[in-house]
Design a protein around this nucleic acid. Structure first.
Length: 615
DNA sequence: CTTAGGG
DNA sequence: CCCTAAG
């Protein structure tokens, strides 16, 4: 039974410049009152409702009468997208206690859309704060507004003023796996998809099978959601270790060898999300994309037609994190009814296989090696990923039609990829995985993927140092100036090997993530030493110089890294030794950290005082 | 691009 | 280690 309630959304900050001045309060805050019919309102419904009301308001507003409707609406969206300060929605209702569990305590951040919400699922409070940042500017000339989560259309407002809020509830676990996109086309203005000039926006919860669909009345047409889709994707499921905490996921013991210090609180995140990152931070990304481009074309036939069609063999380039496919097919005429999509996958191409084998090895052992390497990749349990226009199609429950793999869409961008199967024990490697090349099993049971004939003692007995050095062609070169002429260098390189191993474990944890986080490389003692020395000399505000001075050849250490490391070093130095974890930093170094920090802080203060006096 | 600082 | 505002 739907419960009608009144909501008040307060917009905090002057984040809505588009809203006609008349309706804005002097302080830049304004209220938006609306009625909703739902006792289980979720974030997206709220969003949709708010958006609807906003559109409604601005379009009905006298002050916007000069502007064409088109302009008004597009302005709204643009401003929401562009504004720097987050738009905060406070959702208050006495009766909603504990009824919004899925917007509680999670946050999702993607490069193009940020959404955070805080709330208290257990009824401690009746307030949920939802914060939207940076709505992407994705203007699609489609005359629609849609909100998507995980690529699933949450609602869709078509030209006929139809709105669907599909299964919002179960997908509203925004924090975990959501990539919500909101897009609004300019054309939708005239056909304002959201109902205007209405006092209430009703969001009805027809909740037969726990699915929550909000339907805004009028000629609402309901989209058929893939039935089991929602049921299967229960919230709990999402809450599992799908996005595994990278650093905090492992118990201390598990990563005691990593050399990481106990992190300050700010470093410990409940959940970590990956996102697209700038190339300079992804040393392996580029090669990944290069390696995995694939050719694909598709074949489509109608339900009754066998591939009687002519081949078009369109090629397109895509990329995947795994092994990619080559699909060749044909395209035929189509019927709007019950078309089939027929794909013939000719082959899966293994992107790259690194074999490290001595010259003295026999051809037979080479074959074995290749076989082993192949088996290592393929035997790990794979699943198929489907890519469309370069994007991984995540929702298995959507139909091909819904996904866009159908006759009236271009299939140019269709691709398949072999992905690591998270449930499977030996993780297949991403081709960019450094450990892919690591021919040793270090003290940490690293699965061996390289083809290394164990019969050859010259290689199998190599130390991690040697192995890593041998692999320097493939992994980022370990080329740290400190390691030269430094008794600690061996340890350092070894540490790097361990770091790689650790990183492997990390990767294992986040196999499902397609976007790559930079690998974690704990600072070695000698690195710390070099850092301390440089900071002692240069101070704490010149990280670029520190980098140039002490880490010029350590590509993987950016000046931001150094600054961060200093920050953690100071923190480490201040806490008791018992609280420290990871590779212990000699107390002497920590003392130097503290004194250098004190000294340069003092200098900074002095400098500031001087500049103040001058002014 | 760098720095600074929160997460 | 990530992100980003600000310079």
């Amino acid at each position: 039974m739907a419960l009608e309630k009144r909501l008040e959304c307060r917009f905090i900050g002057n984040s809505l410049p588009t809203v006609p001045r008349a309706s804005r309060s002097p302080r830049g805050k304004r209220s938006l009152k609306m009625k909703v019919m739902n006792n289980q309102m979720c974030a997206f419904e709220l969003l949709a409702t708010v958006a609807g009301n906003l559109l409604q308001e601005s379009e009905c507003s006298p002050s916007s009468s000069n502007a064409s409707a088109r302009k008004v609406q597009s302005t709204i969206i643009r401003d929401v997208q562009v504004k720097k300060k987050p738009l905060k929605l406070e959702y208050c209702d006495q009766r909603c206690r504990g009824e919004i569990p899925y917007v509680s305590g999670h946050s999702s951040r993607r490069s193009n859309y940020n959404y955070t919400s805080k709330g208290f699922p257990h009824g401690q409070t009746n307030k949920t704060t939802i914060k939207f940042e940076k709505l992407p500017m994705k203007t699609e000339e489609r005359g629609e507004i849609d909100f998507r989560l995980n690529g699933i259309m949450l609602n869709k407002c078509s030209k006929e003023d139809q709105i669907e809020l599909l299964d919002v509830k179960n997908h509203a676990l925004v924090g975990i796996d959501s990539c919500m996109k909101a897009s609004l086309s300019r054309d939708s203005v005239h056909n304002c998809s959201f109902p205007r000039c209405r006092d209430d926006v009703k969001i009805v919860c027809r909740d037969a099978d726990e699915r929550c669909s909000g339907v805004i009345p009028q000629k609402s047409k309901t989209f058929k959601a893939a039935p089991q889709c929602i049921r299967d994707q229960r919230i709990r499921k999402f809450m599992g270790p799908r996005y595994v905490k990278v650093d905090t996921s492992m118990k201390d013991g598990e990563r005691s060898h990593t050399g990481g210090h106990m992190k300050p609180a700010f470093w410990r995140r409940k959940t970590r999300y990956t996102r697209q990152r700038s190339p300079r931070y992804s040393p392996f990304k580029r090669s990944l994309f290069k390696q995995n481009s694939f050719l694909i074309s598709e074949q489509k036939v109608t339900s009754e037609g066998n591939s009687s069609s002519k081949s078009t063999n369109r090629n397109s380039v895509g990329s995947a994190s795994g092994i990619s496919s080559s699909v060749v097919g044909q395209e035929s005429s189509f019927q709007s009814g019950d078309s089939h999509v027929k794909l013939s996958i000719k082959s899966f191409r293994v992107p790259e296989l690194f074999i490290d084998i001595p010259e003295t090895a026999t051809v037979a052992s080479l074959k074995r090696s290749v076989m082993e390497a192949m088996t290592a990749i393929l035997g790990g349990g794979l699943r198929i990923g489907v890519l469309l226009q370069g994007k991984m199609v995540r929702d298995d429950n959507r139909t091909l039609l819904q996904t866009g793999i159908c006759h009236d869409h271009k299939l140019d961008g269709l691709g398949f990829a072999l992905e690591p199967n998270p449930t499977s024990a030996p993780p297949p490697l991403c081709p960019d995985d450094p450990l892919f090349l690591l021919p040793c099993s270090t003290s940490h049971s690293v699965t061996r993927y390289s083809a290394l004939p164990s019969a050859n003692p010259a290689i199998s007995d190599t130390s991690p140092t040697l192995q890593v050095n041998k692999l320097s062609n493939f992994i980022e070169k370990i080329n740290d100036p400190i390691s030269r002429n430094n008794p600690d260098s061996t340890a350092m390189v070894t540490m790097s090997a361990e770091a790689l191993a650790v990183d492997h474990v990390d990767r294992k944890c986040r196999q499902s993530e397609l976007v790559h986080r930079r690998i974690r490389r704990p600072f070695t003692v000698s690195e710390v030493e070099a850092l301390v020395q440089a900071v002692e000399k240069l101070g704490t505000g010149r990280w670029r110089d520190v980098k140039l001075r002490a880490f010029d050849n350590a590509r993987h250490r950016t000046y931001v890294d150094l600054k961060d490391k200093w920050k953690t070093l100071v923190h480490t130095a201040r806490i008791s030794p018992q609280q420290r974890r990871g590779l212990p930093v000699p107390q002497e170094l920590l003392d130097r950290v503290l004194s250098a920090h004190a000294y340069w802080s003092q200098q900074q203060e002095k400098h500031q005082r001087e500049t103040c006096l001058l002014l």
